[in-house]
């Protein structure tokens, strides 16, 4: 029996018969690659859209969120490692849910859409595509929460059925990607540009880890890249690190570090820069870039006030605020 080469992500695993890819869930059985977790999620929840976090996409709505085991990255600070760093055969909890059942459940729970999240949905690509196709047909939106470590062609095809993506840009440093996530930076940047080209709504998150990726010069370079390649209206979320998994030796990110990062990003022209994982911080509020009017107030994952006009404009200056609001 022959080996196969997976073309889904930049890792390009060459998988002998009877073995799995680096993600643990795409397995070569009989010379064909199998998606072993198709229809077999291990995590299903209903979350606020703000938890993804998406701040400019249907604020205040609920999203049906699911994930299977496996991941194509191996971040030392992974917060879902019990799910992501296991193969399907290692999971105790496995649900049997076909794509049509996912869509029906999301509708039954009155969710605005479906989020593919928690682990990286790249590794359960076929399941995502089939659910998303059905979901779109009944008017649900599809949200892809990802580290964006995916090849261009599979991503382009998937974007046809996606409405929004939340992409994790872990650092603007290839060495960081290699050391912390066993990955590389360039394909991630290319994937984000592809998402922008394909016209799906995109927000970017950067988890700021003390001493690892909190260099302000690097954050400035990253922000410049986002402004140039993705646009100054791309929301950027600086998120607070909490000690996790194999990175328990570092402290939580100081709030001042997040604020400095936010200032750097705004200084280079980004217009919507947020601070996440900090309860009640002004950094989770959306304000009009022109006049400072409070547009959306948040506390944690809850929208406390929303003053946008029905067509997504500032009530003071009538400027259009970028996002998907309806």
């Amino acid at each position: 029996m022959s080996a196969v080469t997976c073309e889904l992500c930049p890792r390009g695993c060459v998988i002998p018969e009877g073995a799995a890819g680096d993600c643990r869930v795409r397995v070569n059985l009989g010379g064909k690659l199998r998606a072993t977790t198709y229809g077999r999620p291990s995590a299903i929840h209903i979350d606020p859209m703000e938890k993804k976090p998406l701040y400019h996409f249907h604020p205040g709505t609920q999203v049906f969120s699911l994930a299977t085991a496996g991941c194509n990255l191996h971040c030392l600070n992974c917060q879902n490692w019990q799910l992501s760093q296991r193969g399907g055969d290692e999971m105790e909890q496995i649900y049997r849910v076909e794509p049509a059942e996912v869509v029906a459940a999301a509708q039954g729970e009155r969710c605005r859409g479906i989020a593919y999240t928690y682990s990286d949905p790249v590794v359960f690509y076929e399941y995502v595509e089939d659910i998303a196709t059905l979901a779109r047909a009944v008017g649900l939106v599809n949200v892809f929460v990802t580290a964006a470590y995916i090849n261009r062609e599979p991503l382009r095809r998937l974007c046809r059925v996606l409405d929004a993506a939340h992409a994790d840009l872990k650092a603007f440093d290839d060495g960081f990607y290699r050391r912390v996530s066993s990955a590389t930076l360039k394909p991630v940047l290319e994937a984000m540009v592809t998402m922008r080209e394909e016209g799906i709504w995109l927000e970017v998150i950067n988890l700021v880890i003390p001493t690892m990726n909190d260099d302000l010069a690097m954050i400035r370079r990253m922000s410049r890249w986002i402004a140039k390649e993705l646009g100054v209206d791309t929301p950027l979320h600086f998120s607070r690190f909490m000690p996790q998994y194999r990175m328990r030796n570092l402290p939580p990110t100081p709030i001042q570090t997040l604020e400095r990062a936010r200032n750097e990003a705004r200084d280079v022209g980004l217009r919507y820069v947020y601070i996440g994982n900090v309860l009640g911080d002004e950094g989770s509020t959306t304000r009009c870039p022109r006049d400072g009017t409070l547009l959306i107030g948040r506390s944690g994952f809850i929208v406390t006030e929303n003053h946008l006009t029905p067509d997504g404009r500032c009530p003071t200056c009538n400027d259009k605020i970028p996002g998907v609001w309806s």
């Binding site: 077999r40 690509y125 076929e126």
Partner: peptide
């Protein structure tokens, strides 16, 4: 508990791979 659903995006490995 798991599936043998045929995946997309793969090819038979070439000798150089």
């Amino acid at each position: 508990d798991l599936r043998d659903h045929e995946a997309q995006w793969f090819h038979q490995a070439r000798p150089e791979e």
